[in-house]
Design a protein around this nucleic acid. Structure first.
Lengths: 259, 259
DNA sequence: GTGCCGTGTTTCGCTTTACGAAATAAGCGA
DNA sequence: TCGCTTATTTCGTAAAGCGAAACACGGCAC
């Protein structure tokens, strides 16, 4: 019954997840005995799991009624996942289209902890020597993705991204706040950000933000190519990226991560 | 760090929930080592949790990329909770209004496993002898709540609720399918269901369905009062219930539980 | 008031079993 | 091909999860 044939299954965790699933699927807040009767586990065991899950914030324990329900922390995680899941799945086709149309590498990234985090990467060529990997992080100031998002962030947030200790990734990396602000300003005006050899020698990137329903830059898409190849297609690339970003925005759920 | 000061905290569960929270909050699918580095836990431990959570369906393990992400089962639970949470919180004020206006007991219930499950109950009087409790279940055929929901269910689902073994709760409880269908039919025509002493002697109930965005009866509200008191206010009660249900429907999220 | 359920909480001793270091395997890039 | 990184497996130990049973608590009934 509770057995997980997997040899690596941790029993307490597996059983606690049964409790979790039961509570989350009920329309009402549940009592200890109700869970015990529904799942056929010993009272003490269920009691401990309910306590543990409440302590973790996933459940909320209504002391006066002695009932357990799903907690706000769980809902927050669920919202975050829903947005990111939607972002990735709706971006899917657009990324494919871009890489097919330009035969260059396409990136999807979000902003987390004031860094650019790569979420999806489609590489046109096999040579992925210097390519980022999913989950890798790059500074905001050295990437077109970062500058594209910064361009649609509230001013005070942008100021926070202006670090005194700018990481110098290449000899072209922006190293002063003034230039960074100017680039961001220009990105906002043009609707796309550019970066030429500032993150990686010989590679030019064009980045466009993906705005959520509230106009907040939840993510960004970019096309990166060797300087010489990119030079010939800046306008066409920027336009294609903007179209893609618009379509992704349109099919995003109406909820927002930010307030 | 991982300590749960609670004496009843189950450590494996608490730590697994840290892993859970980390994975759910990332925009990208994660690798084992990424979680290890982020949370500072031993590799083997995290590995086991990832396996366990994947086996439970909360995570999805992308074998080819060896990456873990949130699974569909989690999203399903999250959707269910979001709907029920929204239902309860938006119903809150309406239930208060109804109990304040009529000074009689007001119920909120959903349909689960072909039974009526009480989700919220506001009692006007102290005497709660025969009142239902949150989480308790009653048959569909003996309650106004059940008949109200059945009235807006697809025909084939209603047929499933027609049980040969109708539980006879009082001498008035409907015991044959023909009469049940007639009551449901009448409820659909009038927009509210009635039940007089069929679930509990001397008590009359009026029930109204709460429809979701798709027109599916996700829940129902009812007012219950002693037969004599109810007789004088049937129309007024039905109207008030319908207004409340309409308003609850209006503030429900646009997602649906059903297909 | 008194006593009996049906709750939730606490204790406690016994193993079970989770743990994590280290060894192994598997990929992948150079 | 080698060497690095990452995932998996093994294994012995000791921690700690387990659940029966005892306890506390509150509400209802009589």
């Amino acid at each position: 019954m509770t057995k997980g044939s997997d040899p690596y299954s941790v029993l307490p965790v597996a059983k606690a997840m049964q409790v979790f699933a039961y509570v989350a699927s009920q329309a009402h807040d549940v009592t200890l005995t109700e869970v015990v009767q529904a799942l056929g586990m010993p009272k003490t065991t269920v009691f401990r799991y309910l306590q543990t899950l409440s302590a973790a914030g996933l459940f909320a324990h209504d002391i006066v009624q002695d009932r357990y329900g799903v907690g706000e922390r769980f809902r927050e995680l669920a919202r975050t996942d829903a947005i990111y899941h939607s972002l990735r799945s709706t971006a899917q086709g657009e990324l494919d289209g871009l890489v097919g149309g330009f035969r260059e590498t396409v990136n999807l990234a979000v902003l987390a902890d004031d860094e650019v985090v790569y979420v999806d990467i489609r590489e046109a060529t096999r040579s992925q020597r210097f390519q980022a990997r999913i989950g890798h992080r790059h500074p905001v100031h050295s990437t077109s993705l970062g500058k594209a998002m910064a361009a649609f962030l509230p001013a005070e947030t942008v100021e926070r991204l202006v670090r005194p200790e700018y990481e110098q990734r290449t000899y072209r990396t922006l190293t002063d706040a003034r230039t960074f602000r100017r680039h961001v300003e220009e990105a906002r005006r043009r609707g796309f950000a550019m970066e030429t050899g500032e993150n990686e020698d010989g590679v030019t990137c064009i980045g466009v933000p993906i705005l959520d329903g509230k106009g907040y830059p939840i993510a960004a898409v970019s096309l990166s190519a060797p300087d010489n190849r990119m030079k010939a297609m800046v306008d066409r690339a920027a336009g294609a990226l903007q179209d893609a970003a618009r379509r992704i925005t349109a099919s995003l759920p109406p909820i927002s991560l930010h307030v």
